[in-house]
Simulated assay, not measured.
Amino acid sequence: MKTLISATTAALLTLCATLPAHADVRVRANIGMVFDNRYHHDHYYPARGYVAPYVPRGAVIVGAGPGRYWFHGGVWYQPYGPRYRVVAPPFGVVIPLLPPSYVTLTLGGMPYYYANGVYYRPVPEGYVVAAPPPEANTAQVQPAPPPPPPPKAEPIIYPRNGQSPEQLETDRRDCNRWATTQPNAQADSSVFNRAVDACMDGRGYTIK
């Protein structure tokens, strides 16, 4: 048993030795994880090279064909036979949303977002994987403003009484008009939205 444990530990240490050396990343070889505390990010991630039987549920597919990646929680995966290997993303690939945990930075006067050894820059399509700027190795970094929140998804409106699409649009216009007459509705979007929902519910619609 001791021989088996020693062999497993040695294999994981060999895997982690292939990672780029960085003073701010510490390895937990016994479970194949690395601790990233660069810029006080302070999160654990699977070590690059780790092979998982499947990608986590909710992973975003980026790219196509042999250049296809799966992205989830700041971790990038590529197919590795029937399984998936944790990899470093190529520069230039774009994701629609940032990972749940990241650090906001201003480097060289430009905004960056950092997580799991990867730097992201805002672009119209989302966030592009960028090469580490020269200023990344300096001690002085200023926090950048956080990225704007993603737009709220449009609600789904279900006509409980079999109303036609034309009737739905008429009722929605009427409810929007009525909602603007409620106190504070024009100064607080949450009041306006609640008023619209209440009006539509009263006219026989379910909103989710």
Rank of each mutant, 00 (worst) to 15 (best):
M1H: 15
M1V: 14
T3I: 14
I5S: 15
I5C: 14
S6I: 12
S6M: 11
T8R: 13
T9E: 11
T9V: 13
A10T: 05
A10M: 13
A11M: 10
T14F: 12
L15M: 14
L15R: 08
L19M: 10
P20L: 01
P20Y: 07
A21Q: 11
A21E: 11
H22D: 15
D24W: 14
R28Q: 13
A29D: 07
N30D: 12
I31R: 11
M33I: 02
V34L: 09
F35Y: 11
N37S: 13
N37R: 15
R38W: 10
R38L: 08
H40W: 14
H41I: 02
D42Q: 13
H43A: 10
Y44V: 08
Y45G: 01
G49R: 00
Y50P: 00
Y50D: 12
V51W: 06
V51L: 05
V51K: 08
P53C: 01
P53G: 03
Y54Q: 14
G58W: 09
V60P: 01
I61W: 09
V62G: 03
V62R: 04
G63W: 02
G65Q: 05
G65R: 02
G65L: 04
Y69T: 06
Y69G: 02
W70H: 09
W70Y: 15
H72N: 08
H72R: 09
G73Q: 01
G74N: 06
G74Y: 00
W76D: 00
Y77K: 15
Y77M: 07
Y77E: 03
Y77A: 04
Y77L: 06
Q78S: 10
Q78K: 15
Q78N: 08
Q78E: 11
Y80P: 04
G81R: 14
G81Q: 09
R85G: 03
R85K: 15
A88H: 01
A88E: 12
P89K: 01
P90G: 02
P90K: 08
F91K: 03
G92V: 03
G92H: 07
G92N: 11
I95R: 10
I95K: 05
L97Q: 14
L97K: 14
L98I: 06
P99A: 10
P100Y: 08
P100W: 01
S101H: 12
Y102E: 06
Y102K: 02
L105T: 05
T106I: 06
T106F: 03
T106K: 10
T106A: 08
G108Q: 02
G109F: 02
M110Y: 09
M110K: 15
Y114D: 04
A115W: 00
A115T: 03
A115M: 01
N116C: 04
G117R: 01
V118D: 00
R121D: 00
P122Q: 05
